[in-house]
């Protein structure tokens, strides 16, 4: 807890609320409006009375004016499972602080908000597949489980988002809010896993966590580059032209990812580990409609 989040930080987040863009139906009452009417204090609509309806919901004022029995319906607020898919591949151990730490802190912060919103929160670390998961549950005790699990994460292995999403959807039958946190620094095509997430109806939020070195490398001169995930190596002389070409190549890759998410209407956020987390939450996620 002390290493990932501090209490002051969490206190500053209590006024925020996790917003689902789609109405998700959960099994339990929660803080999210369900796609079907139900019992809550929020009025939804009128419908004709049918026998068997609870007479408590007949609007007698309307009957008095129109002599028509109408039953008031209310928005049913149900809990929505919030799934955190956190990338724990080897590439996430780079950065200062590491991308893993940043991603963990982000997941804990958002999970804390979700738990406070009476949602169930689950954690699904992944690399080339899902790792040990924390199934979605209610209550602040879940926060402790999340914290322990994230504290135990050791970033390693290559990234396979497609396999991770496939495993995730196999393990979780219920759609919900999927917060996908990754650096997306893999050569694989993200089309398939994104399509999978969209197809099941998950309300997906993609957050890309990068190291500043990923965006603007400081390497100069002759270097030996090693892929942190595959251990592949190459010798290269890095000069200004190389860096410029890198920036173009990296920008094209990010554009392709962003375009893929946007085509699925999935909000896509990018941050770097040197950026304050609170600033990112308030300025990007809140402004982007993820939080309210």
């Amino acid at each position: 807890m002390q290493q990932l989040l501090d209490e002051d930080f969490l206190r500053r987040l209590v006024n925020l609320r996790f917003m689902a863009r789609r109405r998700q139906g959960g099994r339990f009452s929660g803080g999210h409006a369900a796609p079907r009417s139900g019992m809550s204090i929020e009025f939804a609509d009128y419908r004709d009375y049918v026998p068997g309806d609870d007479l408590r919901y007949v609007d007698w004022n309307v009957y008095g004016r129109l002599e028509r029995l109408l039953v008031k319906t209310f928005v049913q607020e149900l809990d929505v499972p919030v799934y955190f898919l956190v990338d724990t591949s080897a590439s996430m151990r780079l950065g200062r602080p590491t991308k893993t730490i940043y991603a963990s802190r982000l997941a804990l912060a958002l999970g804390y908000l979700a738990l406070r919103n009476l949602d169930r929160v689950g954690l699904y670390p992944f690399a080339d597949g899902l790792a040990e998961c924390v199934p979605p549950r209610h209550g602040m005790a879940q926060f402790s489980r999340l914290l322990r699990r994230l504290s135990a994460v050791v970033p390693q292995g290559p990234t396979s988002l497609a396999k991770a999403v496939a495993d995730f959807q196999t393990q979780t039958r219920e759609s919900g809010i999927v917060v996908l946190i990754s650096d997306f620094c893999a050569e694989e095509d993200v089309h398939e896993p994104i399509a999978r997430l969209a197809h099941r109806g998950d309300d997906t939020i993609a957050i890309r966590v990068l190291d500043r070195e990923d965006v603007a490398p400081s390497a100069r001169g002759p270097v030996e580059l090693r892929d942190v995930e595959t251990d592949e190596r190459m010798a290269l002389v890095v000069g200004p032209a190389t860096l410029e070409a890198y920036r173009k190549g990296f920008g094209a890759h990010e554009t392709a990812i962003r375009r893929e998410f946007q085509s699925r209407r999935i909000p896509f956020f990018v941050t770097t580990t040197d950026r304050p987390l609170e600033q990112f939450i308030h300025e990007d996620l809140r402004a982007g409609g993820v939080l309210q």
């Binding site: 190291d211 490398p217 270097v223 580059l225 892929d227 995930e229 890759h253």
Partner: peptide, 10 residues
């Protein structure tokens, strides 16, 4: 040549 680990090897 200095060794550098990179995430964006591709």
């Amino acid at each position: 040549r200095r060794r550098r680990e990179v995430a964006t090897y591709f």
